[in-house]
Design a protein around this nucleic acid. Structure first.
Lengths: 231, 231
DNA sequence: GAGTGGTCTAGACCACCAA
DNA sequence: TGGTGGTCTAGACCACTCC
């Protein structure tokens, strides 16, 4: 019967406050939705919305019948925005350009074929692209495309970057992304104009559409790149 | 009047299918909620739930009065789980341990003080910890803690890792996370038992609770570390 | 079996903002 | 200023799962 928060965001804030204040300690069950709705003087659906949101953020754990508990190990969930490279460069106020270094049908390396679940011997389109910000190397992209799963005809990838074409011509269904750090090889260092061994921030992505493998790509970012998240 | 999907997830799937099929092209407006509800034979709230979810995923853009459009530049939003280090190591089936290398009050470097918004001259608790997986260096943690914002008494950080203690004793309110790649310094390479210059995956996090700065931490991961996301 | 969260409905009011 | 999404309500049924 305390002060009555207005709206589901206010309820979420109040629940968070109680958790912070340790009124409800980690591992402990909190009142059920019906009771909270009565206390806050709102409909159960409103409480549900607030608690669902906190559960999605990893703050609460909910199970039917078992009720709602304060998460013991609040797995921090962070959401990243992964923009198209052009947008990323332009958002920094720099001019974007790119150079297609290579475009040819080839046999992908085994790890790539495995990751995409392709039969050995399948040939893919291999694209290597250097993306530039204000004319300086920004990102080296090494991409394998599965033409069998793409709408035809394919464009001229020297004129439009593969990423932008895919975004508008292939529906994104699912994929996975991994981030890691690697020392630049001789070849990659040369491409990016860096000393050999420079630490590179590497993004690897593979994408499927309707269970068909579309593309596997490795992005090696020049030093200074930071993937940033506001939580 | 097509086949009637059941439930908001089915509606989300159907909308996604139409976007993938380019029935609704990028940049194009889709019917409003009321019309879709009529078509699908469900309540508007159900359509709303589905479209809100797609908007949160970056697939749709919604504005009052302007309606709902297929996103032109589908900013990929990836959600990362960032577990406590102990859980992360144990999830690999390895045994977790850690060694406190340093614990002392000290003046933080300027960038740390700035990031936390502290007055120059504020002294913080400086902790350096080596986390081990199966006895091998896994992660070097360099942490600055603001005792003024923490519940007293502070624990023995040689017995419980700062991360685990914070998780259960300080409510998480907000913070930001950044990822980058760095070449290991001599000192850090020695601590991690690596050659100098090895590429390290670095996570930097700062955390506030109720507008009070709690902690700034830099985590340097040994090679092989990958931050992985299923989308 | 029974309690809990998950979802749906039909209707309503409101905030926002492009026309 | 009217159309659109955002939200809330009161009630209902269902799915899951702990006891």
């Amino acid at each position: 019967m305390s002060g009555q928060p207005k709206g589901w965001e206010a309820i979420r804030a109040e629940v968070l406050r109680r958790i912070r204040a340790r009124d409800w300690a980690p591992g402990e069950a909190i009142p059920n939705e019906a009771d909270l709705a009565a206390e806050f003087g709102c409909a159960r659906a409103t409480v549900n919305r607030a608690l669902r949101d906190l559960a999605a953020a990893g703050v609460l754990e909910r199970r039917r019948k078992a009720g709602t508990r304060v998460a013991l190990h609040p797995v921090r969930k962070a959401t990243l925005d992964i923009p198209v490279t052009r947008a990323e460069v332009e958002a920094r106020g720099q001019s974007y350009s790119f150079r297609l270094l290579q475009s040819e049908m080839a046999l992908p390396p085994v790890p790539v074929a495995l990751k995409l679940g392709l039969a050995p011997g399948s040939r893919l389109l291999h694209l290597r692209t250097l993306h530039l910000a204000d004319g300086k190397p920004f990102l080296h992209e090494d991409r394998w495309l599965n033409p069998a799963a793409l709408p035809q005809p394919l464009p001229d990838f020297a004129a439009i970057s593969a990423n932008e074409w895919l975004v508008t011509h292939v529906a994104y269904t699912s994929g996975d992304i991994a981030f890691s750090a690697e020392n630049a090889s001789d070849a990659e260092a040369a491409i990016l104009g860096l000393p050999k061994g420079t630490a590179l921030f590497v993004t690897e992505r593979s994408t499927w559409s309707e269970a068909q493998p579309i593309t596997a790509v490795r992005l090696a970012h020049a030093p200074g790149y930071r993937l940033h998240t506001l939580v």
